[in-house]
Design a protein around this nucleic acid. Structure first.
Length: 217
DNA sequence: TGCCAGGCCCTCTTTAGGGCCTT
């Protein structure tokens, strides 16, 4: 919780993160109420970050029921500004991964903007990667993929750290799948970002380029 | 109290519509 990711930086490291929020859109006034994240180094989780935060607005009943995070719980929590400042330090220098990253990225940028910070890190999406690598999965919801791949999980969902941990295991599973199914090794973050932007029918060409030694940043 | 968004991706497409994902 207090360990900075920057203190653990390595070439094969990244941070997987997840927000719980009051709704779906920061542009409509929704705010983050919890952030959870894990640092992955060389295929292992080596640090964790989890904090509730007090958004200064009421949490809808629907969200209380969905997440188990109540207005009472966040009342005593630190402000979003303080928590996001600490999270900014945690992710310093790291690339980021989230499940359906477009959602979490919107809240990340919105909360950072409020404290006049910007996110220089690259962000990759485990949902887009899973849609390409696990095309045969029943669907690509995080819980479904966790069951489908029998990922380590305590069966808790819609809490930030638990979801971040499952997403981290999913990300490692996707890398393993690329190794076993396509003989792709030592995949960079840049390659994985490229994969999530590649149409499915062009994946064989992408895999062939990597196997031929064409580097991705 | 109830509702809100937006990117991706497929198809009966591209001058569009709708399901999937996230809270």
């Amino acid at each position: 919780m207090t360990i900075s990711a920057a203190q653990h930086r390595s070439a094969a490291s990244l941070v997987v993160f997840d927000f719980e929020t009051t709704g779906l859109s920061p542009d409509m006034g929704d705010r983050a109420i919890e952030i959870g994240a894990v640092l992955i180094e060389n295929g292992k989780i080596t640090a964790r970050f989890q904090q509730l935060m007090n958004p200064g607005i009421r949490i809808p009943v629907f969200i209380e029921n969905l997440t188990g995070i109540s207005n009472t719980m966040v009342k005593e929590a630190n402000s979003n500004a303080q928590v996001m400042g600490e999270f900014y330090d945690f992710i310093a220098g790291q690339n980021l991964v989230a499940h359906n990253a477009s959602f979490d990225e919107r809240f990340l940028r919105a909360e950072f903007k409020r404290i006049k910070k910007y996110c220089p890190a690259g962000i990759a999406c485990s949902l887009l990667a899973a849609r390409r690598i696990l095309q045969q999965a029943p669907n690509h919801q995080l819980a479904t993929l966790a069951a489908y791949k029998q990922l380590p999980s305590e069966g808790i969902y819609h809490r930030a750290l638990a979801d971040a941990e499952v997403t981290a295991h999913l990300w490692l599973s996707l890398l393993a799948e690329l190794e076993t199914q396509h003989a792709l090794y030592d995949l960079s973050f840049g390659f994985m970002q490229q994969l999530t932007k590649t149409p499915k029918h062009q994946l064989p060409k992408l895999y062939a380029k990597h196997q031929a030694g064409i580097a991705y940043v």
